[in-house]
Design a protein around this nucleic acid. Structure first.
Lengths: 331, 331
DNA sequence: GACCCGTGTACAAACGTTTGCATGAACGTC
DNA sequence: GACGTTCATGCAAACGTTTGTACACGGGTC
């Protein structure tokens, strides 16, 4: 049916092994022969069968990319960049969505393991221990999780959170609510300790709220608690939470940023499109996708090599932050 | 290295073919034997090697999903649904992003063809002819494109556009700008003819603008032209265009919806998160992803069978539409 | 002219499955 | 008790590659 290496061999009058080498070990075959083979391949429209190659070499040419929720606007730019980089290196990428469930995540990796050369785990929900175990079986790169012995791409959200806090402090805020995300997320811990430090250094108060699901609903749900407190500003775990919070606070009659300043994290669409546009900590998402694939392919080629890359974040000031309201708190 | 069917055979004391059948042709093996095999497989942590299976059966268990731009908020919910449905049927999905380029699209399909059992093309940019050719080589399902002999999932955007126009007409608008998307998109044609009809039936004027890239930038770029015309309302090809248009119109000093009503299409995040929230034609994106995979698997199982599914759209009225401004046009 | 070397090619085994065919056991029928 | 059926299993070929090894040839060295 489909055209195979044998057809190419027949047409070009050489043995299949020569055809194979004409593609993969070019220096082992005479230039003229190679040209002839390539011409025949072209003419027949030959495409190597990757399954067969995989069987023979135990390299599939595929990568896995596992994310918590494709529809969460944080992920698509990362997926896009990872896919583009993989394609540039002639790899294909499988995508899988765990629906935020650790169990699904593990099962997914296991079921992929045999048919990929490695996998990228973005913001995994699994325990460190489970990840470490999986890393024994298959090259892994984790994004936004620090793990000994496992390659990682980290976005320096701690510094970003610090900048965000400094921005609020400069504006005059003295009590700030920090709205946490999922407890398993590495970024949660980073933000927590960064805010801890800065609060101590500047002698301001922090009201911690959470953990919360990283969704608009999560933001709406915590809004009441935040509003009931004395904080005049909020740093939320991500843009979706921040957005939900802004919406609910507005419904409760507060003005953002007049009565309450809000900062998100991610710089997703949401931050740009909402109104007021969100001040947010920009995450280098595309770079992370790109870098994760690079790192992964490196450890695929040189088994056992691991590395960690840290990417910088930056604060993007938009319309959702302002000095605390003048005069009495209207609440 | 990895555990294979042979190991399972050895441990359970049967021939490899029996192991194979214990998994794939269960009725051909004695229940007790099967239990023994399964137990051994479980104990060893056996996972079938899909590449080997693919080689033998020429079924890969993989599907391809090809979209124009993963980061365009229209696609992620579709991708998510498609992936979930594929997984439920024990298929894995490759994802690829064409960057809106027809050439890349074709090359991508070709390079995937050998390693997938079929592919879903979402809102392809290729010509009908090219798609029809590809469909000869590999089972294909196209989303939002009507093509003889090729399975398709269509979202009835024509009816949606009609509803949108009726909504505007009821509000009192008599001249409406219709801002088109990419010329190759099937939805563009649907919207065009639907709006054509309804304009004739109700005796209102239409100002056509475009084609335009389906992005925020595209929306900003056409805003001036729209504003310069006499239209009091706009139906844009998608939410991103609508959003860009609203932004730019606002910068030009117009009030939305006071001076200009705007309707988008997609009901993406953007429509919900922007301010004013966009009135939009909701596309059944998740259903489309789900349905496309179903349809695809059907034609994978029964070669040559094709079908078309049409999904309904609906108008979601939010804050970006209102009766035309009272009194003189401020422009 | 015997020898060696390097270059280019062919041969064949191996990768892990599936599957058509052959074999054999158990059982019922007459 | 010979025969046909059915059921369960084993055997071996096949899928399309890659790759270690063997072979053939031509040219250089002594």
């Amino acid at each position: 049916m489909a055209v195979t290496i044998k057809d190419v061999a027949r047409v070009s009058g050489v043995h299949v092994s020569t055809v194979s080498r004409a593609f993969s070990a070019t220096h082992l075959v005479n230039a003229d022969t190679r040209a002839r083979v390539l011409a025949a391949a072209e003419e027949l429209g030959y495409r190597p069968n990757r399954a067969a190659r995989a069987l023979s070499t135990s390299r599939t040419g595929n990568l896995g990319l596992i994310v918590a929720d494709i529809a969460n606007p944080f992920f698509p730019p990362l997926i896009k960049a990872a896919q583009a980089q993989a394609r540039a290196r002639d790899y294909h990428v499988f995508i899988a969505d765990t629906d935020e469930q650790a169990r699904v995540e593990e099962e997914l990796i296991r079921s992929m393991a045999k048919q990929v050369d490695g996998a990228v785990l973005v913001a995994p929900r699994l325990t460190n221990r489970a990840i470490a175990e999986l890393a024994q079986e298959i090259p892994l790169v984790v994004v936004n999780r620090r793990l000994r012995g496992v390659s990682g791409v980290l976005m320096d959200v701690g510094t970003g959170a610090r900048r965000a806090m400094e921005h609020l402090i400069e504006l005059g805020h003295r009590e700030i609510a920090v709205v946490g995300g999922p407890s398993r997320a590495w970024t949660s811990g980073e933000i927590e300790s960064a805010t801890e430090h800065i609060a101590r250094d500047h002698g301001i108060l922090i009201q911690r709220v959470g953990p919360n699901p990283p969704t608009e609903e999560g933001g709406r749900a915590v809004a009441d608690e935040v509003v009931a407190g004395n904080a005049t500003a909020v740093l939320a775990h991500n843009d979706l939470l921040a957005f939900g919070l802004v919406r609910r606070a507005t419904e409760l009659g507060l003005d953002v940023p007049g009565d309450l300043s809000v900062i998100g994290v991610d710089n997703s669409h949401v931050a740009r499109y909402s109104s007021p546009a969100l001040t947010t900590v920009a995450m280098p998402v595309a770079e992370a996708g790109h870098g994760a694939v690079d790192l992964l392919l490196r450890s695929v080629d040189a088994a056992g090599s691991t590395g960690t890359v840290t990417l910088e974040t930056s604060l993007i000031v938009r319309g959702s932050t302002a000095p605390p309201g003048i005069g009495e708190d209207p609440r």
